[in-house]
Simulated scan of single mutants.
Amino acid sequence: MADTDSSTAIAMVAGESSGDLLASRLLSGLRPHLPQARMYGIGGARMAEYGFISDWPMEKLSVNGLFEVLAHYRELKGIQITLRDRLLADKPDVFIGVDAPDFNFGLEAQLRQAGIPTVHFIGPSIWAWRGGRIKKIARAASHMLVIFPFEEEIYRKAGIPVTYVGHPLAQVIPMVPDVAAARSALGLPADGRVVAIMPGSRMGELKHNTIAFVQAARILAQRDPGMRFIAPMAGEKQSRFFRELVSQAGLQDLPIQLLDGQSHTAMAAADAVLVASGTASLEVALYKKPMVIAYKMMRATWEILRHMSYQPWIGLPNILAREFLVPELLQHNATPQALADALWAQLEDPARQEMLRQRFTAMHHALLRDTANESAQAVLQVIEQNRRQPRRTSPA
């Protein structure tokens, strides 16, 4: 493929901040090969750094939970249909769905049926729940890019072309974090304990997790008055909502340093992290930090999902370790006292901190690949294979 192929068009959809970060790594590998290619769809600020043009705000897709999605169904469906029609008319060389499976797989299936090759970056957790989705994936994706080594065999057995590319975050995050530099960058003292509070990037996650997380921080502050708290926010909208929730709960007396993004700097600076389940928990592990994984959601959603899991863990570090390396406190168990006690126990246990550093370092090495280049090469091969296919002709 010519390095200056200005006719190449790549459409992508990423639905939240973690997808934006992951997609940006893929784009960093693609851009050197396709410096003039048009890249567009739905994405965030990190993707924009590589010339990606987002036709809708990425936050429109950042909805989680069964009933929360239903409340936004009409708007989400409208975006999906409009984008589908645009892509069917435009016929990009490839469509890449980055996570957001409920939105992307339906779109991918229709595009693939029309002859547009589709790549899905990051397989949904069919190994954790809803394994029946493998049939839907087979219809939707021309090629899967997976980020955990055990996923390759799952897709190969299902006859789905797949490439294990490692986890992009393992390449981005340093093997040994620079705590001093991170604290200096955030204006934090070099000594004294720092705890990062990360209730989630989605509005629904903030709604359900923030109060318990901040109340837990207040309990920790009573035990260690010198403890500092930092809370990276995905954007101004999330930051404003966080402040509103804290104020409404009468918790504004606890000094929490809100950060505009800078989640990785916060993790590097922290001694421990209180984190919502999701990609962020893996990021914390790659920064080799003790953590407590917690998650709350609508009661009706919880009652459905808790019966659908195939395994006892929900946090990615524990799933990869196949054991409870760090505590998980979910729904009714995620009380402020329980969260505080679980985090305090790790802060007070140097031997456990060292054990976690060793285990998380081994995990980091296992996930480390040249993800940007390997994922880009897989996408380029999909584009080339499609170009070699006989072009469809319209009926006379």
Rank of each mutant, 00 (worst) to 15 (best):
R84F: 12
Y164R: 03
I219Y: 04
A269P: 01
Q113E: 15
A196V: 01
I197V: 11
I319V: 11
L286D: 02
E153N: 14
L251R: 12
R387M: 09
D85E: 12
G226P: 15
F324Q: 08
S201E: 07
M1H: 11
P101Q: 04
S277N: 01
S394R: 15
T8K: 03
N373I: 12
P57L: 07
M363K: 02
D370S: 13
E68H: 11
P149Q: 07
L329S: 00
M12P: 11
M198G: 09
I134W: 13
R112W: 08
A2W: 14
Q377K: 15
M175D: 14
L286S: 03
A9N: 09
G187L: 14
G261C: 09
L282E: 03
G106A: 12
E244Y: 15
I96V: 11
R392A: 15
L251G: 13
P350D: 08
G187A: 12
L245S: 03
N386M: 01
E303C: 00
D224L: 09
A269L: 05
A48P: 07
F103M: 06
T393M: 09
R202Y: 02
S125P: 00
A196K: 02
F213Q: 01
D341C: 06
N318H: 03
P395S: 06
L26K: 06
S394L: 14
A114F: 08
M297I: 07
L111D: 09
A378S: 15
A185E: 13
A216P: 12
L220V: 05
M233Y: 01
T82N: 15
L30W: 06
L380F: 08
L367N: 05
Q36S: 11
V292D: 11
A100Y: 13
E75A: 15
A268I: 02
S62P: 08
Q257L: 07
M175W: 14
M39W: 07
G204D: 02
S239P: 06
S17T: 12
R223G: 10
F95P: 08
F95N: 04
P390A: 12
N333F: 09
A294T: 06
P174H: 05
V98S: 09
P312G: 01
E303Y: 00
Q346M: 04
A285T: 05
A338H: 14
G159T: 09
L254M: 05
A300W: 01
I79T: 01
V195I: 14
G65M: 04
L259A: 05
G43M: 00
K296G: 09
Y40I: 00
F213D: 02
S281V: 04
P177V: 11
Q331I: 01
H72I: 04
Q337Y: 15
D253W: 12
T335Y: 01
D99G: 04
L87Y: 06
A376P: 05
Y164V: 14
L220K: 06
K77F: 08
E205V: 00
F95D: 05
R133K: 05
R38G: 11
A11Q: 02
E59F: 10
R86Q: 15
R38P: 12
I314L: 00
E59H: 15
A23M: 10
M1A: 10
I173Q: 06
D178I: 11
I122N: 02
A89T: 10
L66R: 05
P189S: 14
G44P: 04
G131D: 03
P168M: 00
R218P: 03
G41F: 11
P395W: 08
M298K: 14
A114V: 10
V292T: 08
V246L: 08
D102F: 03
A109M: 02
N386Q: 05
